[in-house]
Design a protein around this nucleic acid. Structure first.
Lengths: 250, 250
DNA sequence: AGACAATTAAATGTCTGACAAATGAAAAAT
DNA sequence: ATTTTTCATTTGTCAGACATTTAATTGTCT
């Protein structure tokens, strides 16, 4: 039996206890935790241990600390804007570390993205349509680097999901869409492939204007298949090119 | 100008630096970081400060620490199973802290869940179908508490999304589905409403067996509208009942 | 009385030095 | 050859100290 699974460290235990109190609602947004010295006394540990526990919670944005008199650790208001970057980081690492094939990642991403089409067609605004149009214009610039093209692509799709006017939906979809960017950055976009993508983006905007959610679905599906094709070419070349240690440099 | 935005603390800076190295791929899974003493020397800070930085990274599951002679901090393999609970916690808190209406949350959840229907119809397995059937059986037990009914409901829907046989998709959808549980737990499920939900669950299983993804969509949409109706009743009663301080006790 | 400056108290951020506990490797004993 | 012991390394924890930040308080001058 090597699975003895020793007890977690004190700082983990304390962090877990406070986290549970937050999740259960015993501690509300804006509430102040006792000072580090008080927490140390309450839990019978040193201040250093309490601090490590608090840093764990701060890393999850559950608390925020302020210095000075009347400072301390406060239960943080977790906003979607704050949570998004963390989710993107996690999703990106998950994709990178788990031998997920490009195809599986793409399949998930577009399946998820299609969940916004119905609401987007219903609620699209002129402002977001303009954003999408201007991103298409940028993508048509032949001098754009591949990386900038990808960034604009992400911006386009974020505008699409934001068109659904549902914050919760936007949060989940943004994570899924942005996490793909590092994978997309491996692709070399030729003039021909860029033209095809721009064409499908145009199709999406048109369908959105005309509130035809089915056509958005279709364009996204076409985009999915086209992207998978592009991706497989890259992956194949990488494999035959003989597994140079890293997957990022030329 | 009160937005001076003072420099982040040293432990934050160090954590950010290491995190960047991980995300950029400079540090690979399994790599060992220098010992705390070495990191302290390298960054010109004390060991306590380095430790706080490492605890931040550990809280995000980016590293794992081992004690003993050849121990230290190792780049963690971030698995979907590890990341899921964290995502659920975050999603749950986001829902609870952001005055998201029950309707908006439900709308997002079911829109996302419908993104699995096509793949699920294509790939469903007998094992997961059996899981879904047994959860339906449990839900039909009139002695079940409301909380257990909710838990079974979540298990049912997780089996549905897992039927799509796409790990990435399951990850995102599980977060969205499970985050709703605290909100669902506020609902009192009458015998009549339970029967209606079970009926729709049956419909989903049947559609899945017959690979009719459209019918799964329809059942999910019906479930969405029915749940919103139930939820609004609860929210209304809560409002007229005169805002007793907490939203959890009877 | 009111405006401005200095003081003070409370809290986090950081440092130092120490010891405990775990753990694998090497050395010693059988 | 195998088992036991020792040992060095590293994380976990503690205690105490000082630096820094911040808001409230107090003091002073007009």
């Amino acid at each position: 039996m090597k699975n003895a699974k020793q007890a977690p460290s004190l700082s983990v235990q304390i962090a877990d206890a406070i986290r549970a109190a937050i999740v259960e609602g015993a501690l509300l947004v804006g509430d102040r935790l006792p000072s580090e010295a008080e927490l140390a006394e309450q839990h019978g540990v040193s201040r250093a241990t309490v601090r490590e526990a608090l840093k764990r919670l701060a890393a999850q944005s559950l608390i925020r600390t302020e210095r000075g008199a009347f400072g301390g650790a406060f239960i943080n208001h977790l906003s979607y804007d704050e949570a998004r970057p963390q989710q993107v980081t996690t999703s990106t690492l998950l994709l990178g570390m788990n031998a997920v094939s490009f195809q599986v990642a793409c399949e998930a991403r577009y399946a998820l993205e299609r969940s916004c089409t119905s609401l987007a067609a219903e609620r699209r605004t002129d402002a977001l349509l303009d954003t999408m149009r201007s991103e298409i214009a940028r993508q048509s610039d032949p001098d754009l680097t591949d990386e900038a093209f990808c960034a604009s692509d992400v911006a386009f799709h974020r505008a699409l999901v934001d068109s659904a006017a549902n914050e919760v939906l936007s949060y989940h979809l943004a994570g899924s869409v942005e996490a793909m960017q590092p994978l997309m950055n491996m692709i070399t976009f030729t003039a021909r492939s860029r033209a095809e993508i721009v064409r499908l983006h145009h199709q999406i905007v048109t369908a959105l204007v005309e509130r035809r959610s089915n056509q958005i679905d279709e364009a996204l599906t076409a985009l999915e298949h086209y992207t998978i094709t592009l991706g497989q070419t890259v992956m194949q070349r990488r494999r035959t090119d003989g597994m140079s240690k890293d997957g990022l440099t030329s």
